[in-house]
Write a protein that binds this DNA or RNA. Structure first.
Lengths: 143, 143
DNA sequence: GTTGAAATTGATAAGCTGTCTCAAGATAGT
DNA sequence: ACTATCTTGAGACAGCTTATCAATTTCAAC
């Protein structure tokens, strides 16, 4: 197995272009990162502790930021933390959040995305990313 | 002067409902807050230093969070800081934010709001509030 | 207007997230 | 294998926000 992932090539190219090196840690973090929709540095730190107990939190931050520069990830402020989103899953970034129990439902709506582009264009903007969060009560919490 | 502001009543009601008290500081901060579209705690701290040199930063944070609970303000994370937006004065609006220069353009789009309701209903939610932010480059920063 | 229980304040310590420092170790071109 | 350069890990550090707590203020009941 271990087929050549598109993202791994993107990373390799980015590294070569900037005189950076491909390390064991960077490969490890990328592989784990690609398996998920969005993560925080802290989350990955705990996830990867099993595979490499000495992997430092600083390295994870550095690497996730590197992924952002390489165009593989996208940082987004969510609450007090920074979420790193997997770009290849773009379009799944919106959230429906229950203020009662904290449940988070992810959704996608092309029509809303289209209207966002429309608004941006009208104002001379080119959208890089967006964030849409709907807060309310889920069916269960309304009782 | 000192006419009765709608927001002051909203605050008074909220305070009464939660056994909280109306203080000189809360009045002062609300008055200053309502004059602006969005502020950070730090900004208000400096603005109000002239009127009350002993007003503490912690009090400003506490009070702005209180405004959020009362529905007068809405917190928004931008970069590493928290912006407090005045929503009760102009009604709800969404933001178009330039990642280059930080310019914030406000907009409103009924069609998007309608689609949001649709998504919520489909998932059994009843929306209380929402947040929509589009990040990108403004016409000026694209060069 | 006094009184007193309860909330609030100001000052600062503490907490949290993320970045910086630097010696030791890994990488990759030769 | 050698060497210049980059990276790592550990902890120190920095910026923003919240918690702590003694002193003060509010407000409702007298």
């Amino acid at each position: 197995m271990n087929k050549t992932l598109k993202e791994m090539d993107v990373l390799r190219q980015h590294l070569a272009k900037h005189q950076l090196k491909l390390t064991r840690q960077r490969e490890l973090i990328l592989t784990a990162f690609l398996r998920q929709e969005h993560v925080t540095a802290e989350t990955m730190y705990h996830q990867l502790a099993k595979k490499d107990p000495h992997l430092g939190l600083a390295t994870i931050y550095r690497t996730l930021n590197l992924f952002c520069e390489a165009g593989i990830a996208q940082a987004r402020h969510f609450g007090t933390q920074t979420q790193y989103d997997n770009i290849s899953h773009k379009g799944h970034h919106d959230h429906l959040i229950c203020t009662g129990c904290g449940t988070i439902v992810e959704f996608e709506n092309c029509e809303i995305e289209r209207l966002q582009e429309e608004v941006a264009t009208k104002n001379g903007f080119v959208i890089q990313t967006h964030r849409l969060e709907l807060y309310g009560l889920c069916a269960h919490c309304r009782h």
